[in-house]
């Protein structure tokens, strides 16, 4: 087994783990983390491809997959930031950390927001 195949297999494992968690855990924060793990699996596979591609005459690793991973990392960071900001807003507005259908699916009744929860003050920012 070559090193690149090993990396690719680990990458595939991470994608599977992430997908499992993304679909089966109700907490949105865990879903966001699961997406990041999935993303890392994909990046690992891309890097393993970079090692494999070059032919014998040109032993340097292929730069294209590395450029792809760099772009992917930037996208992953920004989307994670957006997801976290949105989750905070959702929590502030509704006091929940699960999406409604997940609770219905698993029959969970989410605990009411704790005493540190910031509840909405009903202010409509539309007309400022």
């Amino acid at each position: 087994m070559t090193a690149s195949l090993w990396y690719a297999l680990i990458g595939a494992g991470l994608v599977t783990l992430g997908l499992h968690s993304l679909t089966l855990t109700p907490h949105v924060l865990r879903k966001v983390i699961a997406l990041n793990i999935m993303g890392n699996g994909v990046f690992l596979m891309l890097i393993s491809l970079a090692r494999r591609l070059p032919d014998a005459t040109n032993p340097a690793p292929d730069p294209v997959p590395q450029a792809m991973v760099l772009t992917g990392v930037v996208v992953a960071i920004s989307s994670t930031a957006l997801a976290l900001a949105l989750l905070r807003r959702y929590y502030e507005a509704s006091g929940r950390t699960h999406l409604p259908e997940d609770d219905a699916l698993w029959g969970i009744e989410e605990e009411p927001p704790g005493r540190f929860a910031v509840m909405p003050d009903g202010e409509d920012d539309d007309d400022h």
Partner: peptide, 10 residues
């Protein structure tokens, strides 16, 4: 809308 946006994002 926040829930819909989160669901769509995921």
């Amino acid at each position: 809308a926040y829930a819909a946006a989160l669901r769509y994002l995921l």
